[in-house]
């Protein structure tokens, strides 16, 4: 019997993703973002979250998905992992569910265009509903970005 997990559910396109609730600090509506020059295109800039400056990344851009216009539904999920605070811009975030870690399966190579190494697994909640669990420490892995940068540059 696995452990019970509380998961924040958010959407990128039609796909639903999940992050454990204890990694999430808050969920914010879109707010003014100050652009930071000379950095990766998916880094949208920094925001003022109650006096703390926090970098914000577009999760679509991070996964190499096409970026889209922000809407009323767009949210910034502030997560804390590896000692870093980062905001994720997602298409929408509106659900918290309980799942059992037993129902998380190892992910196939690519899910909805997202590489498997960014994923912790796929949870089948019901017949037609799949939840892709993120591997936060990989998503926030800076060494990979720095490599990427040197390849591009």
């Amino acid at each position: 019997m696995g452990e019970e997990l509380k998961v924040i559910v958010f959407k990128l396109g039609e796909e639903e993703y999940g992050i454990e609730v204890d990694k999430v600090q808050t969920i914010e509506r879109m707010m003014p973002i100050t652009r930071v020059p000379k950095t990766f295109s998916f880094v949208k800039g920094v925001i003022n979250l109650r006096g703390v400056v926090i970098p914000v990344i577009d999760l679509r851009g991070r996964f190499g998905l096409p970026e889209s216009e922000y809407t009323d539904q767009s949210r910034i999920i502030i997560v804390t992992a590896n000692d870093m605070e980062v905001g994720f811009i997602v298409d929408s975030a509106n659900d918290v569910i309980d799942i059992n870690s037993d129902i998380i399966d190892t992910p196939p190579d690519v899910v909805g265009g997202v590489k498997a190494k960014y994923l912790r697994g796929v949870a089948r909640i019901s017949e037609e509903r799949l939840l892709v669990m993120l591997n936060l420490s990989e998503v926030l892995n800076r060494s990979e970005i720095i490599q990427l940068e040197s390849l591009e540059g």
Binding site: V36, P37, V46, E85
Partner: peptide, 19 residues
């Protein structure tokens, strides 16, 4: 003076941020 957060690498010409 505030820092830009650990996630961002050092950016040439930017010393930090303020609110």
């Amino acid at each position: 003076i505030k820092n830009l957060g650990k996630y961002l690498p050092a950016i040439q010409g930017i010393a930090g941020a303020t609110i």
